[in-house]
């Protein structure tokens, strides 16, 4: 029998000091592994030129400067495609893609979770199966489809496929199963609300955590999408692509590269910080039953 210590009539779970120490040590080491590279980028982006070229390289910055960021803008404005165009592309693709994905996924998820119709299990299983393979598998055939549709080298090739992510539908459906009470839906229907109205006015507000999660998932993918095989024109390329060009451009641009990486990472991280508790709540229902 385990020794039970009780404090205020509550069972205290047995925890060894050695275990606590080991666990915290592990967390600190892993945390350092995860955090230090991120920290290093931020430091690099703030280093003036002479510190970037200092030997040995340092993990901190003595005279922080924002000149790398302003250099980035100068450098990009000399480009054949203006800097603002890349940003516009990324923002435009991210926002429209995310919005469409949210709308289509929630509508389909609502039907799959709350309406009973022949074929719904089969369709959902198909979506679950598609979580099991990576998009590289479909890239070749999608290239042919895009070329048949004359969507190559247009925004459509980036935006429309983002509308129907399996992950989005999956997370939304799982959350709706438990997050939307069937009784409330029933009473709305009795009051004569149409199914679309019930979905939009009753169910959607109940799954706010899920649509925030969906938005992050979708936004993150689109924001970080780089060199697409469907896009040739420089005018349609994304910010991430432009940044990769700069970063891989060599050591001379180390500071500028770091600055652009920092800009790229700030947006998704901020979005995640704002929505973290909602995301965790949604993930609570993400489990696969069999």
């Amino acid at each position: 029998m385990a020794k039970l210590r009780t404090r205020k009539h509550k069972v205290v779970l047995s925890r060894s000091t050695g275990g606590d120490f080991g666990i915290n040590l592990f967390l600190v080491i892993m945390g350092a592994f995860m955090f230090l590279p991120m920290y290093y980028v931020i430091m690099q982006s703030l280093k003036p030129l002479d510190e970037l070229w200092m030997f040995p390289p340092r993990f901190y910055v003595e005279n922080p400067t924002l000149s790398n960021f302003s250099d980035l803008f100068t450098l990009m404005s000399d480009n054949y495609v203006p800097f603002s165009r890349y940003i516009f592309n990324t923002v435009f693709v991210s926002v429209t893609g995310t919005f469409g994905n949210l709308l289509l996924s929630s509508m389909a998820a609502y039907a799959l979770a709350k309406l009973k119709f022949p074929g719904r299990k089969f369709l959902f299983q198909l979506v679950v199966k598609s979580l099991m393979f990576h998009q590289t598998v479909t890239a070749i055939a999608n290239f042919l489809t895009m070329s048949t549709l004359h969507w190559l080298d247009s925004y459509l090739a980036l935006i429309v496929p983002a509308f129907c992510t399996s992950m989005g539908l999956y997370l939304m459906k799982q959350f709706m199963e438990t997050g939307v009470s069937t009784e409330v839906l029933e009473s709305a229907r009795l009051d004569g609300a149409s199914e679309f109205r019930t979905f939009w006015v009753i169910a959607m507000p109940m799954v706010k955590p899920a649509w925030l999660t969906l938005m992050i998932e979708s936004f993150k993918n689109l924001w970080n999408s780089g060199n697409s095989i469907y896009i040739y024109s420089e005018q349609l390329k994304t910010f991430n692509y432009a940044i990769n060009q700069i970063v891989t451009g060599g050591i001379a641009r180390a500071g500028v590269g770091a600055a652009s990486t920092v800009i790229m990472m700030i947006v998704p991280i901020t979005v995640f910080i704002i929505c973290q508790s909602n995301v965790i709540e949604t993930m609570g229902s993400s489990g696969m039953k069999d």
Binding site: M30, M34, M38, N224, G226, V247, T261, I269, F272, Q276
Partner: peptide
């Protein structure tokens, strides 16, 4: 906070290119 630290690299896009800087092939790589 700790969740964010561990999760951040996976959402930050091409931030993994920092490893190229860390392991850069000249003496300016850390």
């Amino acid at each position: 906070v700790v969740t964010l630290i561990f999760y951040a690299p996976s959402i930050s896009g091409s931030v993994y290119l920092v490893w190229q800087t860390l392991f850069s092939s000249d003496s300016y790589g850390w």
